[in-house]
Amino acid sequence: MFCKPYILLFGAILILAGCDQPPSAKARIPKPHLVEVLSVQPVDIELERVRTGTLEAFQTINIYNQEEGIVKQILPREGDTVKRDDLLITLDDQLLSAQLQRARAVRQQAEKELQRISGLIKRNLTARSELTQKETDLAVAKADEQVIATRLGYTRIKSPIDGVVTARHTEPGNLAEKSSLLLTLADLSSLRLKVDVSELLLNQLIPDMPVDIEIDALRSANRSNSFEVSGKVSRIYPTIDPTTRSGTLEISLNPAPQGARPGQFARVKFQIARQQVLLLPFASLRQSDSGSYVYIIDSDNNVQIRPLQTGLKAGEQIEVLAGLQPGERVITRGFTNLKAGMQVIVVDRGTDNQNGTSAP
């Protein structure tokens, strides 16, 4: 009975002794840093690039008058189809017709004078210099007549191409001063569009390369999301814009699909065959002031920083041009508090999820 107080006292001493232990004895073990990695390998892929543009007529011609006059008649209206050499516009020609009659009379008079002098020369009744003068007068008269006849022809304006009237800029009764814009014609049998592409993509395109073109405006007629036709690269402009680092391509559609018109929106799809391309998930790419980089791990699972030179983006992946070798392991998940030189533990997402944990 007398032992119980001693037992209680001894237990209290042990508890107090435990409270006096230093904090270092209770330190926790650091939690390992988990990451997911991807071993990069070269793959053969065909990249698709889409660029947008606006359809335009391959040939558009503005019709101007070369002679001043009142517009007597304009035969076609907007949307009308015309053929080469069809009469489009007639101008008042009364003044020029009168001038042509006068020039014709002068020429006829010069011909008669030349005949008369030629007869006198044969009979030695006049000097040969008279003959030379009359020949000159006749040549001048013929030239004047030709000039007036040509100007008179300018009052009847004909179509220079097969095409469609896209704009009518005047009406009958208006005075058309010299060099006035009267009509606009376009050849809609073939269309083109110009697109800007980056210098990286430009180097992989060649003239006559086939491309696919989607025209959204035609999808309702074809009951599909878009209307796709074939085209080709008809021209590659020789210069690069130093500001945007892009060049210009001309894509032709010949023949143009039914219903396609200038001004419609179009998408151009470039299919570029590439061999042995290294691709990375775009999300694994990091950015700094000096450029793009990724975290890789060595054989001892130590983290390293690797600067990269990247190329074209393909969906959720990006092409690696320089900075990585096949087989190197790139960290794709677990970037929180990640630093160079840190040792990490590689986990598989499927296994990790089964254990109820994940990479940070």
Rank of each mutant, 00 (worst) to 15 (best):
L87C: 01
I117C: 06
L114N: 02
R107S: 15
D85A: 09
R84T: 06
R104M: 10
D85N: 05
A139W: 00
E113G: 05
E111R: 08
Q115C: 05
E130R: 09
A105I: 06
V106N: 03
L131M: 01
L125Y: 12
Q109R: 12
L88C: 02
S97T: 15
N124P: 01
T126R: 09
L96Y: 15
S97M: 14
T90G: 04
K122D: 06
R102D: 03
G119F: 09
K112Y: 13
A98R: 14
D85F: 04
E111T: 10
S129D: 06
K134N: 06
Q94E: 15
K134Y: 04
Q133I: 07
S97Q: 15
T126K: 14
L100E: 14
Q108G: 11
T126A: 15
Q99N: 10
L91M: 02
T136G: 12
K134D: 05
T136L: 08
L131N: 00
K112Q: 09
L96Q: 14
A105N: 04
Q94W: 13
T90M: 12
R123A: 06
A103V: 01
I89F: 07
Q133C: 00
Q133S: 05
E130Y: 05
Q94A: 07
A110Y: 14
K112R: 12
Q115V: 12
L95P: 06
Q101L: 14
K122F: 02
A105C: 04
L95W: 12
A103E: 01
T136N: 10
L88Q: 03
L87H: 03
D86V: 01
T132H: 00
A139T: 00
S97H: 10
R123E: 09
I89D: 08
R116G: 10
I121A: 10
A127E: 10
Q115N: 08
L100G: 08
L120V: 08
V106F: 08
Q115K: 05
K122I: 04
D92N: 13
G119M: 06
A103D: 03
G119Q: 07
L125W: 14
Q108P: 04
D93Q: 11
E130H: 05
A110T: 12
L125P: 06
L87F: 00
D137A: 09
L91D: 04
T90I: 10
A110R: 15
A105K: 13
Q94K: 13
L96D: 15
D137E: 15
L96K: 09
S129Y: 04
Q115G: 02
D93V: 01
Q109H: 06
R104T: 13
T136H: 09
L138V: 07
K112W: 14
D86W: 05
D86G: 01
Q115D: 10
K122Q: 12
L114I: 03
D86F: 03
R102V: 07
T90P: 09
K112A: 08
Q109F: 10
L138M: 15
S129G: 03
S97D: 14
K134C: 05
A139L: 01
A110H: 09
S97P: 03
R104C: 06
T90K: 13
L100P: 04
L91R: 05
S118E: 08
Q94G: 11
S129W: 00
A98E: 08
T90C: 05
T126H: 14
Q133R: 03
T136C: 01
G119K: 11
Q133F: 02
S129H: 01
T90E: 14
I89K: 02
I89Y: 02
L114T: 11
